[in-house]
């Protein structure tokens, strides 16, 4: 069983997630796209684990999940805070820090 299709799928999902981050404006959706990218990389890690025959890749994916969990908690809290003060969840509205 070749692993290349898995990797290619991972790459495609990652790219879609990246484009999503660039095009979507709802902060929550942008965040979802980030999660999609993380998941895509997890898929690649697990695939590599299988290809190399050890569990290190799976451990790495596990850590990615842990970090993603922490990140989501803080990120969503930030989105909430911004929404509370600005009544908007658009990432374009929070653009005061500029020239």
């Amino acid at each position: 069983m070749s692993v290349t299709p898995f990797i290619v799928l991972s790459a495609i999902l990652f790219t879609i997630g990246a484009v999503g981050v660039l095009t979507r404006r709802n902060a929550i959706v942008v965040f979802m796209c980030v999660e999609l990218m993380l998941n895509a990389s997890n898929l690649a890690l697990i695939t590599f684990a299988k290809a190399n025959g050890n569990l290190d890749g799976q451990i790495a994916a596990f850590f990615v999940m842990v970090v993603a969990a922490a990140e989501v908690v803080v990120g969503l809290a930030i989105i909430m805070t911004i929404f509370r003060t600005r009544r908007s969840a658009s990432v374009d509205d929070a653009s005061l820090l500029k020239y």
């Binding site: 942008v30 929070a94 653009s95 500029k98 020239y99």
Partner: peptide
Amino acid sequence: LRRAQNGFVRSYALSLL
């Protein structure tokens, strides 16, 4: 170059990508 700092996170992300 200052114009590049437009405050939009998505622009920064684009240059990152």
